[in-house]
């Protein structure tokens, strides 16, 4: 098969050939993490920042895996429920990992893990002012996304559905509106349960998809990593190819002329032409 190449995804001066961003949490082992990342084809991986236990020096750590794989590392502020702790976490991450990239999460409450819009706006403004390249996790509210982009976010990352819920893109209309309203890359972040969810997000025109639990929580994470990669590429290609319009009635693929005698419906019963177009505008 002839090689097909896409434009790279450009974020904060970085070019990514893979549009899948993958988290490093919840795998069964470091080996599984490493293999899943490799199979997913990702070039940017997320990590969390946590207290370092005294004397917890394992032979090989996540840092080694990330470095050996040559991944761009995107630290997150997961677990922060106010702007101040998210900003502190971002500063620590920058010092630790020597990157200005930060996946900003300011969460509202532990049950839904939905982003808190007020804290998210405040932390975005603060971090952009400190020179961070802020990739901001947000709800799928289009106007909020506009404010975040106006504040200087490098990427706006609406949740498809709550983190780890595996429910896919619950409000495709809003995600589409966000993509129309902001000029920075829109990455669907969170809620992806399976490969078709990734494909749906990419078909909508998302610049990329960020996921973690969808792979790590699968029965076979390594096979799911492959599936997510394929879903991402398929969705991206379908978006660029331009899907057909949705119609209410059928639209024959084979010629309607030249049928043998007495075959086919009478011309009077045919619902051909523009009459078959979707009357309610589903497309």
């Amino acid at each position: 098969m002839e090689q097909w190449t896409d434009e790279p995804l450009r974020i904060a001066g970085i070019e990514l050939q893979s549009r899948l961003l993958v988290g490093t949490g919840k795998y069964a082992s470091l080996e599984q993490t490493e293999e899943a990342l490799k199979l997913s084809g990702t070039q940017m991986v997320t990590v969390a920042i946590r207290r370092l236990d005294a004397g917890a020096t394992e032979e090989r750590c996540l840092m080694d895996v990330v470095r050996a794989g040559g991944y761009h590392v995107l630290p997150n502020t997961a677990g922060c429920f106010d702007a101040e702790s998210a900003v502190r976490t971002a500063r620590l991450a920058r010092d630790l990992l020597e990157t200005d990239l930060i996946k900003l999460e300011v969460l509202g409450d532990p049950r839904t893990l939905l982003p808190d819009p007020v804290g998210t706006l405040a932390a975005t403004e603060q971090l952009v002012g400190e020179g961070f390249k802020v990739m901001v996790y947000t709800s799928d509210d289009p106007r909020l996304a506009v404010h975040l982009a106006d504040l200087g976010a490098a990427s706006v990352m609406p949740a498809g559905s709550p983190i780890g819920s595996g429910r896919g893109v619950l409000n495709p209309t809003n995600v589409q509106l966000i993509m129309e309203l902001v000029d920075v890359p829109v990455i669907v972040d969170a809620g992806v349960g399976t490969a078709s969810d990734v494909a749906v997000a990419m078909e909508l025109g998302a610049a990329g998809v960020l996921l973690n639990t969808g792979i790590a929580g699968a029965r076979d994470p390594l096979l799911m990593a492959r599936a997510m990669r394929a879903g991402c590429e398929a969705g991206r290609q379908a978006y660029l190819a331009g899907r057909i319009e949705r119609r209410l009635y059928a639209n024959a693929s084979s010629p309607e002329e030249g049928l043998i005698e007495e075959a086919g419906p009478g011309a009077a019963n045919s619902a051909g032409g523009d009459k078959g177009k979707d009357p309610v505008g589903v497309s």
């Binding site: 988290g23 490093t24 919840k26 969390a48 920042i49 370092l52 840092m63 620590l92 780890g164 639990t213």
Partner: peptide, 10 residues
């Protein structure tokens, strides 16, 4: 004093 490092996360 806080000592932090990176761990797996999304």
């Amino acid at each position: 004093v806080e000592f932090v490092t990176l761990v797996g996360g999304g």
